[in-house]
Design a protein around this nucleic acid. Structure first.
Length: 303
DNA sequence: AAGACGAAAGTGGTTGA
DNA sequence: TCAACAACTTTCGTCTT
């Protein structure tokens, strides 16, 4: 690995090798560079056989308790055998070594258990929200890094996983709102936001503020609008942003308004109510943004 | 009757002292 | 830590299609 590589996504040269798997990861955006599939399956499922594993994903994972089912053997500290007799020196040395390994295994065990829970939680949230696989992968990587950086300390696992999902969505340019994620998980919006901000700082990921355009395709398909409308809406947003307007405005409101106007322009009118519903803002906000867009961009919209 | 509009008061989050 | 502030929401009455 002599040649210097560059992240194809963000252009950063800070690529790091992931520990236990032969993977190169961009430390800026979390993108996996090598095409090796990031398969979370085999590893974290550990030794607890395949029996129920974690495909069933309803409700709180029952696997949580199963993890140590009969598997965490304790080695007694007394140097006696089951009959209470003393052990031979040879035997004692052997037991000593066993204890040592027991300890070591248990340390990594705790981490693995943490990961196991977190990743199944991650999967639960992600499938709740119908997120594409690549987002889950990015989220999983972020979580791994969060664990390595000791970020979870003092924070709930669920909070951090939710934050990972949120971050992953944004990185992938398919942003979801904190509310949406809060709905899909068991953590409230506030907590997710806190965890996210902390993570962003600690992991040094710089995410640009959400671009309203990123919402367009999702909203549009939810409203059954054509590609032409989407194009038009994105154009409008680009124009507005480039001329410095719309700053400080909520991206979803902007997206909603642009979509609303574009739909009218293309003869696919939707009501303000419908648009505001998918964008999770109120009609009033749609109206306000739409007014601004209208006279700031000098659009002629015959309503 | 449904949708669009806008005023006014209320809410939660950010910012700056 | 607290108050000021802007964005956004809620509510509601009126106008338009």
């Amino acid at each position: 690995m002599g040649e210097t590589k560059v992240c194809p996504d963000c252009g950063s040269t800070k690529l790091t090798q992931d520990f236990d798997r032969a993977e190169v990861i961009c430390s800026n955006c979390g993108l996996v560079i090598t095409d090796g599939i990031f398969d979370t399956g085999p590893e974290w499922r550990m030794f607890e056989s395949d029996e129920d594993s974690s495909k069933g994903r309803a409700g709180p994972p029952s696997t949580f308790t199963i993890h140590d089912k009969g598997l965490t053997t304790m080695i007694d500290w007394r140097n006696r055998d089951i009959h209470g007799k003393d052990l031979t020196p040879h035997r004692r040395a052997q037991i000593y070594r066993l204890r040592k390994w027991q300890k070591r295994i248990r340390v990594s065990d705790a981490m693995e258990r943490n990961l196991a829970f977190a990743l199944s939680e991650l999967d639960r949230i992600a499938s709740n929200m119908r997120l594409p696989k690549n987002i889950r992968e990015v989220a999983a990587i972020l979580y791994r890094r969060a664990v390595e950086q000791r970020i979870i300390r003092g924070r709930s696992i669920e909070g951090v996983t939710s934050a990972c999902v949120y971050a992953a969505c944004r990185q992938t340019k398919l942003p979801r709102t904190l509310d949406e994620i809060a709905d899909a998980s068991r953590v409230d919006k506030k907590e997710i936001g806190r965890s996210y901000r902390f993570m962003a700082k600690e992991l040094g990921m710089k995410l640009p503020p959400t671009n309203p355009s990123d919402y367009i395709s999702r909203f549009a398909s939810e409203l059954g609008l054509s590609g032409r409308v989407q194009m038009r809406a994105k154009d409008m947003i680009d124009q507005a942003i480039r001329s410095g307007l719309m700053s400080g405005r909520g991206p979803m409101g902007v997206a909603a308004a642009a979509l609303y106007i574009a739909a009218i322009l293309e003869g696919e009118r939707r009501t303000q109510r419908d648009v505001s519903e998918v964008a999770k803002v109120t009609e009033v906000t749609v109206r306000n943004r739409y007014k601004e867009l209208q006279d700031r961009l000098a659009l002629e919209v015959d309503v």
